[in-house]
Design a protein around this nucleic acid. Structure first.
Lengths: 186, 186
DNA sequence: TTACCTTGTGCAACTAGTTGCATAAACAGT
DNA sequence: ACTGTTTATGCAACTAGTTGCACAAGGTAA
């Protein structure tokens, strides 16, 4: 139940319309909390109904019109409450690890190309994070907000680094195995 | 859409009843693909209806009776197909990183205790993985199946290692900040 | 022999997220 | 003017996962 809080955070960082939020979820925020435009519009409606945000009364809000939102005090309070509240980590689900485990019983045929593709994706993501770090976080001690955001980015960088390394190892391992794997031995 | 494949994998590793599967999802498989007993029972029903698995005809299957399943050839084929097929990685969602980002705008009050709690959970998980590694994967080159399973476990170990390190850094950083954070400066 | 606990299976209702499409305005080209 | 594209918002239906509870059989203990 974190999407509303992701949106509140994004709106506090900068007042935005639905589409602007969607774009920002495709970069930045979406790196650790993705959402489609459908989810965002729906949630904006709920948040407005609950009095946590409000539409800026600039233009009349009709279809095809931009409608920007800002966070109300109640919204900020709710976000602060949620941020400080204790939460159990949600169980992870990783299809790639599952597939490797499946490959242990039905064979590794066809896996290698996809592992390579995943490796490329993670390498690209890592490069992107590193660019962001160079651009937005030059060395030197900054304020609390910047340091926290840098910490989050570091998590992204280190995670992608982990995955690229693990995938390289996985590729090396899989390459040594017979194609059919243990299920269909030569 | 991976739950059926997780179940097929688990059943190929060992024929089981619904509850046995549930227990195995609480350890092992569930470390990277968690599922509740409800999901499992429902999915077992579907898999049986689709002819991918079948109930072992040992006892008559009534309520309160154990009912074990085994994978049929069609099920193995489907798992092999899924394993080798190309798949895009699903977007991640990490509430903790989101909370840190939120803390950057509404303040870090209350965060520290929960970060510490998460650190403990990850440390415990890491210790558990390391025990499994010592117990199930003694040094020495083994067959393809064992090596693939070891690879999956290594991912778990390295991920938990990453999180414990990152959380320690996060705690150190947060400790230096004013409690209210940037939103309510002293 | 009733009263309770554990094991095992399952339904129903709910929440969260995804997919596919509809609508409308603004703008660009021809 | 008309056609097509981009920007912007949104509905409806679907899939996946969660939560809460129900039910049955077997053991166990007063």
């Amino acid at each position: 139940m974190s999407l509303p809080h992701a949106i509140l955070t994004a709106l506090l960082e900068k007042k935005s319309s639905g589409l602007e939020l969607t774009r920002r979820f495709d970069r930045s925020i979406g790196y650790f909390w993705s959402a489609t435009h459908q989810q965002i519009y729906r949630e904006l409606g709920k948040l407005e109904a609950d009095g946590l945000i409000r539409a800026l009364p600039s233009e009349q809000p009709a279809r095809g019109q931009k409608k920007s939102y800002e966070v109300l005090p109640a919204g900020r309070a709710e976000l602060a409450r949620w941020t400080s509240a204790s939460q159990d980590p949600k169980p992870h689900r990783d299809a790639l690890l599952l597939r490797l485990r499946a490959a242990a019983v039905v064979g590794t045929a066809g896996l290698e190309t996809d592992l390579r593709r995943h490796l490329e994706l993670h390498e690209r993501q890592l490069a992107e994070y590193q660019e962001i770090e160079e651009r937005d976080f030059p060395p030197g001690r900054e304020g609390a907000e910047v340091r926290l955001r840098h910490l989050v980015l570091r998590a992204g960088i280190d995670l992608e680094t982990f995955w690229t390394q693990w995938l390289r190892r996985a590729l090396a391992d899989v390459a040594e195995l017979p194609d059919g794997g243990p299920a269909e031995p030569a």
